[in-house]
């Protein structure tokens, strides 16, 4: 079990809380709560050790530009494939801005 914290700059607080995904093998759960303006804090709990570099690369692509809403994001990964991870993250951000 690996726990990874990532911090990014962000914009105004997210407008709502979001939950997508499921606690199930090969899937993941993404929970988003609004945070104070300017801060995006992501905590990843992953079943797969040694996955930190992959997570960092994937989340940098989405958040490094600081344009996302300010949020606290928790990701619980149960061995999701990269395809499932991308889809779930896209789904979470889409529902956040819906």
């Amino acid at each position: 079990m690996e726990k990874l914290h990532l911090h990014y700059p962000a914009g105004a607080p997210a407008a709502q809380a979001v939950l997508v995904g499921v606690v199930a093998s090969g899937d993941l759960e993404v929970l988003i709560a609004p945070a104070a303006a300017g801060s995006c804090h992501i905590v990843i709990h992953s079943a797969a050790d040694g996955s930190a570099a992959r997570w960092r690369a994937q989340l940098d692509r989405l958040f490094a530009d600081g344009q996302a809403a300010a949020m606290q994001m928790e990701i619980n990964d149960f061995g999701a494939t990269p395809g499932v991870v991308s889809l779930r993250l896209a789904q979470a951000l889409e529902e956040l801005s819906a």
Partner: peptide, 10 residues
């Protein structure tokens, strides 16, 4: 999320 032979779909 549907897991298919050609990858996951929402």
């Amino acid at each position: 999320l549907l897991k298919t032979a050609s990858g996951p779909l929402l």
